[in-house]
Design a protein around this nucleic acid. Sequence first.
DNA 1: CATATTTTGACGTACGTCAATCATTTTTGA
DNA 2: TCAAAAATGATTGACGTACGTCAAAATATG
Lengths: 340, 340
Amino acid sequence: MSRVTAQDVAEEAGVSLATVDRVLNKRKGVRSETIKKVATAMNRLNFVRDQTAANLARSRSYRFTFIVSAGETSFFSDIQSEIEAAKFEAAKERIDIQMLTVPPLDPQAIVEVIERLGDDIGDGLALVAVESQAVRDSVNALRARGVRVVTFISDIPNSQRQRFVGIDNVAAGRVAGSLLKRFISAPSGDVAVVAGSSTLRDHVERRMGFEQVMRTECRHLNVLPWIEGEEMAGVVEEKLSKLIAGNPNIVGLYSLGGGTRGVIGAIDSAEQKISMVTTELSQHTRAALISGTVDAVLVQDPSHEVRSAIRVLRALVDEAPINEKQERIRIEIFMRDNLP
Amino acid sequence: MSRVTAQDVAEEAGVSLATVDRVLNKRKGVRSETIKKVATAMNRLNFVRDQTAANLARSRSYRFTFIVSAGETSFFSDIQSEIEAAKFEAAKERIDIQMLTVPPLDPQAIVEVIERLGDDIGDGLALVAVESQAVRDSVNALRARGVRVVTFISDIPNSQRQRFVGIDNVAAGRVAGSLLKRFISAPSGDVAVVAGSSTLRDHVERRMGFEQVMRTECRHLNVLPWIEGEEMAGVVEEKLSKLIAGNPNIVGLYSLGGGTRGVIGAIDSAEQKISMVTTELSQHTRAALISGTVDAVLVQDPSHEVRSAIRVLRALVDEAPINEKQERIRIEIFMRDNLP
DNA sequence: CATATTTTGACGTACGTCAATCATTTTTGA
DNA sequence: TCAAAAATGATTGACGTACGTCAAAATATG
């Protein structure tokens, strides 16, 4: 029971190997009647084209670029080390990956990096996007040049990017909301929200989801205007400490990304009991989860996201189908009891 | 900037291609000094052996068997369709998969299937295990014959199986416990637990985790003896209805697997408000989540588990390293707000 | 120093598909 | 019906590694 080869199909269909190959690779010069003959033969024999052999013969190789924020956030340093790790795995399959970092929240820097790269960007780009017309234009220009583009972690929906690799951020916000709703036992009070920047769509969307829940299901809670920390723990801690000091009514807090270390610092030195949901699993959030400062952490798996981005880019180049189930990035909820 | 081949390494090291090949495949007959020379040459040139070409040359193919329960549970029918789906993907990489189903909770049936298969079981087996000495012996016998074995969904730790592919069930139980703790607003009351069978280790472990939390953190709640439904919705519904009718104190329920449909039926017709955490995402739990009957559902992704089992078996055959991050099966928590 | 043993080289074939070339057959249209 | 065009066959050489054989060289052993 050895494998069925293209040669077997040719014999079964009563045509030559060359013709089967033409059909297989959708090259022209084959009558539709013959195509049909070959197709039925393939079905009859249950032929599955050998990807490994095909790739080898094509000697196709891929070159992908990752552009990620170089923030002080532990999340992005995780992302970076995951990309580094994925490099080795990818190399075995002829995928060459380069990673470039840009200052966080700086659309201009992204545009410049893309321009500087020129054709060196390769076949595809995975980009941690920042909401900005310049970036959008840049992405569209790349697409026009035939480069495949996926946004990564943070999306730019109204651009030509072919796919977004990341979690459903609105859903993440909603989950945070309904968890916090359960965690807060006080009959009423204020809820603080800490975010990185309003130019990061993932943050905006989480905020959106969070507010949806708060507005519809938590009339007893009052959501305060968000604190923008620009991804810097120091800034966050300062602003938040001030807010808490001036507001004894705060009973809950949602830290939706960036500077969580600062959030924890501020909360730890606060008087009142504040229920808390945060993002990113770092040593700080982990410790805070165990100590009880933080009640739940909503996480996206950087390792999965990096692998997914690579697989998706590759599928786009090959014009192959994407396995939706495999590429669905999950919102993971960590509580004290299921820390990995 | 073309790829570095083994030939290039040979030239760089000043040896022949044959020698490089011997080093590459760890064949004997090479002085350690020469091995070192080749190794440094590989580093210098940054040589990565081409997996596709290697697999092709080896023309290695794999044959794996899945043995899964044929229960009426929607979870296992999901598993089965995922295995079917994975078949096609796997075939492209020369992996031939066969799936066999056995009646649920029947260790003898598993043993018989394994014996009947004989060598036809192939290179590896993924088995939804049932706690039983006979099954354990059977697994050990397979291992002795050189068959790779992973347990799947439900483990048998004290056997020779090489790995368990599934979630951390104790953690899942703990998460269920701490969620339920938050969901129950009553100052005290009873908590019911519904499970499939005490011969399923995953169920036992979840129960264990759940009780850990209940005992240590919820002194105000009293956990009732579990209801064993043998994976049948009808049985569950009947037993549970009776329990609820006779006990108006029930404020919470953890359905940890098997017959969730029956659980929902019983709860829907109950008088009191019962907070509820269940397992498996089926149309029933989904609807119950939306309607508010169920507060949270803890899920394992069958699609991921099937792919993972295949990758792990393959890595075991190849004696290749396993990517732990990729193979970590997550406990997913679904609430009304993040239903996929 | 001769012989045995180990190490290395040289070479060829295989894996299944891709892709190109050139020859030949079939189809099409005027 | 004949030439032009289209379709198909036949063949061949990649692609990069695996793996076997045989011979030659280097090294060890007595």
